[in-house]
Write a protein that binds this DNA or RNA. Sequence first.
DNA 1: CTGACTGCAAACGTTTTGCACGGTA
DNA 2: TACCGTGCAAAACGTTTGCAGTCAG
Lengths: 133, 133
Amino acid sequence: MEQYIELLKHNNIKVTPQRLAIVELMDINGHISVREIFNKIKANFPSLSLATVYKNVNSMLKNSFIKELKITGQDSKYELAKEAHSHLICQSCGDVKDIILDTNSLISDALEKSDYTISESSLQLFGLCSNCQ
Amino acid sequence: MEQYIELLKHNNIKVTPQRLAIVELMDINGHISVREIFNKIKANFPSLSLATVYKNVNSMLKNSFIKELKITGQDSKYELAKEAHSHLICQSCGDVKDIILDTNSLISDALEKSDYTISESSLQLFGLCSNCQ
DNA sequence: CTGACTGCAAACGTTTTGCACGGTA
DNA sequence: TACCGTGCAAAACGTTTGCAGTCAG
């Protein structure tokens, strides 16, 4: 709890119960959609409004202390910003798992082969998690 | 033109002028959104309905002879299915360019480090194209 | 105390659906 | 001819906005 308060304060966002619930969910679940956030919090917090979730997710995105994950065939999911990593996505249950892979050689190869500069990358690996195999 | 007729026939989809226009646009533009498809075709084909574009794009997705490209901060774009490749995305003008990179070592590394099977991957590289630098 | 946040309802844009008509095979 | 595709209008969504009341700092 204390850690989430600190996280919000560090990002110059006022601490409210709704925001604490949102960052706590993201921390525990790892990757979560707006609708999932709303449904889970709503259970213990009936007055919550969907609009509030959207407003908060958007302001957290602007402060870029959370990141959006667009996934084919799924709603966008959100995660707390942390060190660069890739995502394993289960095509059966939709589960998303972080994995740290070295993409440096790939990126330098891309810089060589193209006339783009590159400042960011996103790698998604689709397959089946151990439960769904 | 003949090539597009063949492409549709090979995928057991009836050949209509609207569908020909859509696959031609995808072939020429490479990556294009529903709205862009609609606007471009509408100019030469005033009776076209947005609903028709959606219906066709969805059925082409199901037959998986086109692929969806979800990009942070942009509308989804669609491309004809072809050999596996990655995407360079310009953060300024939104341009998308294909690039072929060898992701094999990355994927075998991921297989080793995780308990997932992997059947597909998507790599997006964000930066600036030569015009926008 | 002041500005920011919340909840509600309305507005908005996008995507889907149902149906009658027209075109493809 | 039989079925599928088209266009239109309406409906269904997801997301955003405006506003009045409330709360955090």
